[in-house]
Structure formats: C-alpha cells, structure tokens
Design a protein around this nucleic acid. Structure first.
Length: 495
RNA sequence: GGGCCGUUAGCUCAAUUGGCAGAGCAGGGGCCUCUUAAGCCCAAGGUUGUUGGUUCGAUUCCAACACGGCCCA
C-alpha cells in the first residue's frame, strides 16, 4: 500500500475539523465546476406531502412521466454503484429519490452521489412507485441549493441531547421530525386563538413592552434603561392595565397576544419570557369570560386535532375555590379566616405545609397549589378566589371576602386567569394602597401604585370581563409536552 | 436553595471488581442499477465536561466547579 494512496492529504485534522474540511473541499469543487452551484432561488417547488398525496394510486413498480419539483435537505443516501436512492426532507415530509446513471449521465450522477447528507438540493423528477412500494421521484435534473459545511445530527437516531436540542434548536428541527411538527402545531394553536377573537370582533392591539410602571400581575419585573430619556423602564409582566385603558377608551373588545416577562425562577412550567393572550370584553363578567375561554381552547384543540386524555370539547367542570380546598384537605377556609387560625388548622391536619410567617391568602394559595391543582386533570374552572389574592378583580357580588375571579386548570397546571374587572376607581385606589403596605413589609411581588390607571378608571370603565391565557402552557397540554422549554423555540439557558 | 441522575468520536450508544476506551451511523478509499437504519471490503477518527485528589495505574473511586435533566422547597 505504501505510496499508492494519494486520495487525501493528511493534514493531521481529525474529528469534526476533518469532516468540515472535507465538506468545504467539496464546496470549493462545486464553485469551480458549476457556476450555478449556489443559486439565488429555486422556483416554486411542490411540498413533499403534496407530491406523496398525488400519487397514492400508483401500483408497485409503476412509473409515470409526470414531472414534479421538490426542494429540501438530503437526509440519507443508499448507493448501488450506477444507481442510488436518496431521501429528501422538507417541512412537510420525506420523499425518496431514485438516481440512475443512465438517466442523468455519468457526470451528473457522480455529482449527485458525491453530495453529503445535510446538503440542500432541488430536484425535478418523474413520479413512480418503487418495487419496494415507496412513492419516489426518478431524478431527471437537480441543483445544489446550498452546501452544508457541518455534518447534520444523525437522521435516524435523531438528536437526543436535551441541552443541544435547546441551545441549537435548528439542529433539533433538522433531525427530529416530532420537533418540526410541534412548532408547526404551536403556530396552528396561536393562529386558532387569533382567528376566534378576530371572528368575535375583538380588536388586536399592541401596547408597550417597555413600561414606566409594571402592573397587572403579582411578579417581579426585568428592568432596563432608556439612554435618551435617561430613565429606568420595566419589561411588562402583563398587558392588563393598558388593555383596560383601551376599554375605557371605548374599543369595547380588545386583545393582545405577545410576550410577557417575569424575573423569577425557571422551571418546567415557568419561563422568564412567555407568551400570553389577554382579552377584555366590555359589558361582560367572569362567567362570560369562562364561556369564551372554553370556546377558544376548544378551537385550539381542534386546530391540532388533539386526541389526548383531556376532554376539551365538553363543558368544563366548575368548582368554588373554598369547596375545592375542603374536598382536598377537609379544611373550611371561611371558618378559619385569619392567618393564625388557618395555620393551626393546617398544622392540626398534618398536611406537611409550612405556615410560619405566611399570610392567610398565601396559605390559601399554597393549599390550592399543593392539594388541588395537581388533581385537576380534566379542564376545570376554580371560581371565587380570596379577595386578597386579586387586586384587580371585583369583589364577589354576593359573598364578602371573595373576588369574582377564576383560574382554569388542565393536566394539573394553571392555564388561564380571569376576573370581573374592578372598575370602581376608589376601590382600586384602596387596593393599590394595600399593595403599597405589603411592599413596605417586604413583599417583592406587589403592585406599584399606578395613578394614570386610576385616572383612567375615573373616566368610567364599563363592566368588563378579562382573561389571560398562557399560550406556552396551552401548547404543552395540546402537544403532550411536560416542559415549557420543549415548546419554546429558544429557551433561556445559562452561559 | 436541597436531593438524585447525567456529561465518552460529528450523531446515537457501550466499556466486567480500577488494568491498552469499543461499536453502529456519518465522513475517507474501493465494489455494487430497486434500496429504505441498503450491503460488502479497507483505512482513519478520542484532552472520556473542567480542575484537583487517592492509586503503580482512573472513563471507572473521592472532592470542588460548570452545564443539563428529574424531584422537592
């Protein structure tokens, strides 16, 4: 063998650098031998799924002279000397290509079979069904559309490393068909939500992401700085207060769909930036809001043909907050209406829940989160929250100390939150003052006093029902994922 | 913040009580005109996450750290 192998100059490169060098050398050859090796466009390819659908009728071994044009990424190659099978993948599916030296000519055949898995190509070929029974295209002409200089992840095993899948989502999308489907389904869900609201005459609006004051939820904000104005600004934690000002303004039915930001811990259910839709309807209350929420989520489930264990099509269960806690723990919240009484009751029942230093509403919230929420698999509205947990909700029309607020749960997680919106400016002012007092006691998740919002309410806001739906969590449920990072394209990661 | 688990070739995964780190795919050189995880032959490919420690010898045992996953708070 000595002196007979000259095929590859050994520059000492191994591993990934060698793989890249080999591909770059091929790219260089393409540039030198084919002036159109890196074209600017490839006119109107047909989606693979459409081609496959059009030739279901072909018999095994049947060939046609109907030319089809497809474009996509080379996913596999099975060479047979003077012929070869290749798999081409686009957004809609995978189609097999059959290349024959006698059809293409030796030079083109050689050029095609020397491509690498991962390269992007465009193909014109005639439809056929192979002897193996697979609908295929016999390649008659092809064009390299872009050379891949880095090797793709293994197309058969997919990309398994979770960290790489999140940090390099493009590789996840290339290698894992379920990931492609997930994000296409996510788009269908978002689109279904918009379509519902548009069809019901809600107006889509855009309110500030950078806000002088944050509000509308109990959460810590991100802060940033505007150089020209030389002032601190907050990234919004909710769109609530601006949307209600638009209700004051007479837009009557408005919605905003977009990102909110909360400077809190990350978990499988929490992301520092997340997608929320909030919609507000004048002259409606939280009962109307519940009905709309059922309808929206029903439409979203239908959009992705959801067929899991959760029944989104029927009418959702409704349970009162205090009843849900009594059912789960035996505790009668209303009979223990202060922190020390409830703390004693929780301790007496040995629920394993810490109570030291917690306020009554915090304990009530903890009881729901720990003993009720995980059991709510089928869609459920939990109605009538303690007033203290709901600074923007009206007090219940017949039950003192409770708010006209519900949260919706499914699959054991919270997916939506709604109120009969508080529209009495003097009561709202008092609620802000309570929040300020809590902040003074060290609570970091309180509402800053928003005088402009109060003045807006003083102009008169009609009775209004408002809802916020966490769309990432909705996607999780409808697409069967158990982590929010799975349904966000580029989740936040440590450096 | 705490506990448990993980990190080995471009990708997917092995490695016995601590004893020369292996395979499939991809990539390179050949053969092959219906395969589909194509097949066959040949050659090549590794700072075993990082830094220390124990040891004659560490992917393996210990510690710290980094990143990630799961559970708990």
């Amino acid at each position: 063998m000595s002196g007979t192998t000259t095929e590859e100059p050994d520059d000492g490169a191994h591993g990934l650098p060698a793989l890249i060098a080999a591909r770059r050398a091929k790219a260089q050859t393409l540039r030198q031998t084919d002036r159109s090796a890196f074209p600017y466009a490839f006119a109107r390819p047909t989606p693979v799924a459409e081609v496959l659908g059009a030739y279901e009728h072909l018999q095994v071994g049947e060939e046609t002279d109907e030319r089809q044009r497809v474009a996509g990424r080379l996913a596999a190659r099975r060479g047979h000397g003077k012929s070869a099978f290749l798999d081409l993948v686009d957004r809609t599916g995978k189609i097999q290509l059959h290349a024959r030296s006698d059809v293409l000519g030796g030079e083109a055949f050689e050029r095609l079979t020397s491509l690498d898995v991962g390269d992007l190509i465009g193909v014109d070929g005639s439809a056929m069904r192979s002897r193996g029974g697979e609908i295929s295209l016999r390649v008659e002409d092809f064009q390299v559309l872009a050379k891949a200089l880095r090797p793709p992840p293994d197309f058969h095993h997919g990309l398994a490393d979770v960290q790489t899948r999140y940090r390099r989502r493009e590789l996840d999308l290339i290698a894992n068909e379920p990931t492609r489907k997930l994000f296409i389904d996510r788009a269908k869900i978002i689109s279904a939500v918009r379509s519902y609201l548009d069809a019901q005459d809600f107006i889509e609006v855009e309110t500030p992401v950078l806000q002088p004051l944050y509000g509308g939820a109990l959460a810590r904000p991100f802060t940033t700085h505007h150089n020209e104005l030389d002032r601190e600004l907050y990234l919004r934690i909710a769109t609530e207060l601006y949307l209600k000002r638009l209700i004051v303004g007479g837009l009557e039915k408005v919605y905003e769909l977009g990102k909110d930001f909360r400077n809190e811990g990350v978990s499988t259910k929490h992301s520092p930036e997340f997608t929320m839709v909030e919609f507000y309807e004048a002259y409606a209350d939280y009962n109307d809001a519940a009905q709309r929420t059922e309808e929206i989520i029903r439409a979203a489930a239908q959009a992705v043909q959801y067929s899991g264990e959760i029944d989104f099509q029927g009418s959702w269960r409704r349970v009162r907050f205090v009843d849900a806690i009594t059912e789960a723990t035996g505790i009668d919240l209303m009979a223990h209406r202060d922190a020390s009484a409830l703390g004693r009751e929780i301790s007496a029942r040995e629920l394993g829940l810490a109570t030291d230093g917690l306020t009554w509403p915090q304990m009530a919230d903890d009881l729901l989160a720990k003993f009720v929420e995980p059991t709510l698999i089928q869609p459920t509205f939990v109605f009538d929250y303690p007033l203290e947990l709901s600074p923007f909700a009206r007090e219940h029309r017949s039950q003192a100390g409770l708010a006209e607020r519900w949260e919706a749960f499914a699959g054991g997680i919270e997916i939506a939150n709604a109120f009969s919106e508080l529209n009495d400016p003097d009561v709202q002012r008092a609620r802000f003052e309570e929040q300020q007092s809590l902040a003074a006691q060290g609570d970091e998740e309180t509402q800053p006093y928003d005088e402009i919002f109060i003045e807006a309410l003083e102009q008169g806001m009609p009775p209004t029902g408002g809802v916020g739906i966490g769309l990432d969590r909705l996607v999780m449920l409808l697409c069967g994922r158990d982590s929010i990072r799975e349904v966000v394209l580029f989740p936040a990661m440590r450096d």
